[in-house]
């Protein structure tokens, strides 16, 4: 292998800090588990035609529901941002009982959230009572 010339070495030494500087603005690698199959708590989900997540350029990755140590159901929703900009949105969970009736709760409120470029955020909620059997989540894109 040929030794790089002094001009090439200079170019590399200049390019590397610039590359690191550029990488500093966006995460280069997103660390995640090596799990390939859905979690045992993973549940099927439905996104409406008027897909607010899609409009916010976010992708729904997985929805998990299990019973919390305290008793009520808890939900986790993984949302990924495959763009190169931070995506801001707000979300609201509403919990329903087995008959599909809305359970009124002060926990049901709009919460602001964001996902870094190329990253994943897990948004979560815990049901207000043990009677909750299902939930729905609304998303609004922030300005």
């Amino acid at each position: 292998m040929r030794n790089p010339s002094s001009a090439t070495r200079a170019a590399i030494s200049l390019a590397l800090p610039i590359a690191f500087l550029a990488l500093g603005c966006t995460p280069a690698v997103n660390v995640t588990t090596t799990r390939q199959t859905p979690s045992a708590a993973s549940v099927p989900f439905r996104t409406d035609v008027n897909d607010a997540l899609g409009k916010a350029q976010l992708r729904l990755v997985e929805v998990r529901v299990d019973r919390s140590p305290g008793g009520p159901l808890r939900a986790q929703v993984d949302v990924s941002n495959e763009t190169s900009r931070v995506k801001r949105f707000s979300y609201k969970f509403e919990w329903l009982d087995a008959a599909g009736v809305l359970i009124p709760s002060t926990q049901s409120t709009w919460i602001p959230a964001s996902v870094p470029p190329g990253g994943i955020a897990t948004i979560r909620s815990v049901a207000p009572t043990d009677a909750a059997a299902d939930f729905r989540m609304q998303v609004l894109r922030s300005q």
Binding site: S68, G70, G71, P72, Q107, I111, V126, P128
Partner: peptide
């Protein structure tokens, strides 16, 4: 909401 979520979740 965050406080109540945590209170209910931990049991």
């Amino acid at each position: 909401a965050v406080m109540l979520d945590s209170l209910f979740e931990t049991g």
